[in-house]
Design a protein around this nucleic acid. Sequence first.
DNA 1: TTGTAGGCGTTATCAG
DNA 2: CTGATAACGCCTACAA
Lengths: 332, 332
Amino acid sequence: MSTARSTVKITDVAALAGVAPMTVSRVLNNPGQVATATALRVRAAIEQLGYVPNLIAGGLSSRRSRIVAAIVPTIATPVFATSIQAFTDALGHAGYHVVLGLSGYAPGGEDALVAAVLGRQPDGIMLAGAQHSPAVRLRLATSGIPVVEIWDMVDDPADMIVGFDHASVGAAAAGYLRAKGHRRFATIGADDPRAAARRHGLADAVRAGGGAVLFDTIMPAPASIQGGRDAVAAAMRHLHQPVAVFCSSDLVAAGAVIEAQARGLAVPGQLAVCGFGDFEISAAMNPPITTVAVDGAEIGRAAADCLLKRLGGVAGPRRVIVPFRIVERGSA
Amino acid sequence: MSTARSTVKITDVAALAGVAPMTVSRVLNNPGQVATATALRVRAAIEQLGYVPNLIAGGLSSRRSRIVAAIVPTIATPVFATSIQAFTDALGHAGYHVVLGLSGYAPGGEDALVAAVLGRQPDGIMLAGAQHSPAVRLRLATSGIPVVEIWDMVDDPADMIVGFDHASVGAAAAGYLRAKGHRRFATIGADDPRAAARRHGLADAVRAGGGAVLFDTIMPAPASIQGGRDAVAAAMRHLHQPVAVFCSSDLVAAGAVIEAQARGLAVPGQLAVCGFGDFEISAAMNPPITTVAVDGAEIGRAAADCLLKRLGGVAGPRRVIVPFRIVERGSA
DNA sequence: TTGTAGGCGTTATCAG
DNA sequence: CTGATAACGCCTACAA
């Protein structure tokens, strides 16, 4: 490859190879349609000129941008970061690029972002959660492109959805903790809709079983370790008997364990702690933290698969349930 | 906004508003040039039709994609995630979208990614680190677009660079720990070039001061809490006197503290621990972890500023040094 | 302040 | 298997 100028275009390659631009295009996009000898000459010319196809022009012409948008509240927390990582990897291998949109946790942050990103003519779009404003839903519907929602599960997704039911997570945690003999509960969680669903799932199951939820702490999203510490510190002013705390995130759970230990409370004896997410920190703590494990990377991969299937014209499932499971460790 | 079909284009808006397409374009891109009354009619038409400009077409025509590429090894670790978060936010406010590229830590992962993403005709590109293959450097140079490297500092950046010198971080940590009376050291770190530079910076300073580095542990990148635990567990078979460990990441440092506590070693008495990054976990641990703080979000913001300045035709600094500082806490 | 003409670089389509 | 032609939807440049 020579030190080519930046403006090598398909016509330059075609001229050097002695073919029409269309043939160069075919070598790149439909190699099977081109005679081997011709393709060889074209590839040599591409190499020699350092030609990089202009995907903007190609996208305009073909009406396929080969871009997929991914919109999540934040990537500064492991939940979405792992999914985005896997999603981007999977799509990258298929020749797609991911445009990242960070909507924050403020209501309405999503709308402007979706509008802006749709102007990019993405071939598909991925969104965190299944709760979107009517404006967003309308935009998605009129855009006509495949949509995958992730990290949630509802009966009526906008299009496709990959995740699990959060209320069931709470119920499963309640079942596990009850089986361990706990009857008094507390929750600590971030102010976000999915965390709320898990909290309610736990509370409903606990009450149905004759237990009690003595204390709820809600902190601004995203969840944090320090938030967990602070919440336990505050709760200890009110709670004078052992409880089991269900945390909206393993970060919170880790904070709860740290604060308990700093106060000389036995974990799980005086404070049993159950987290959510199975982040790395949970297995590495001492005691290791019992948690509800969800494979965020698998969610990202599955979401990419859904999109790629649809873009390939294959009808895939509308709802993909990625299982969660309770990982019993030392903290509860 | 009615439930418009997906293919509303600028000519539709123009027809409805009774103006030329160019006037619609001006309303969107150069509002100052259009009479207020005209602009009002145009905006009404845009609203009514639910028009979303096709940025692909606009980009092809204007030769400005309003896309910026960001290429980092991973976002599954707080280091780059916070920078990407801030970078994306800052550019989003200026009307740019970020295309995310995840190169991994394997050598050569960057090359294909840069080539592919340059086909997208980004207006600028951000890369983690200042060490790139000759192929990548050539591509960047011939592309002619602004480049910002982040999280490193060298004399000869590809173009612009925002970060700090990693050897100095190691030296500063050594200085701090020596002042605390430590003479025996160990390092635990990920196998990545910047971590290596910090390690060497520490080792050089330690030796220059008559101290000794007794033990080095290198783990595959990215760094992890469990990696820190394992490293301390392994080191304890060889070390029978107190040492100060310098960790390549606060995750590693947290693992070191957890493992030490699990073994009944006093921190900092028998094992002093210094981390890097000032991630949330460090302040929240007990004892809280002494670390070298770097503002990853500030790096992302500054990188965005550099790019935006250049794209706006303003000459900015080539090298922006984002300071680090030692945060003294309980672990060292 | 507004409009007209032309082209951005590629690919769909149809013809050979 | 290869080529010619005509868009794709918008914006730059110039003209009125």
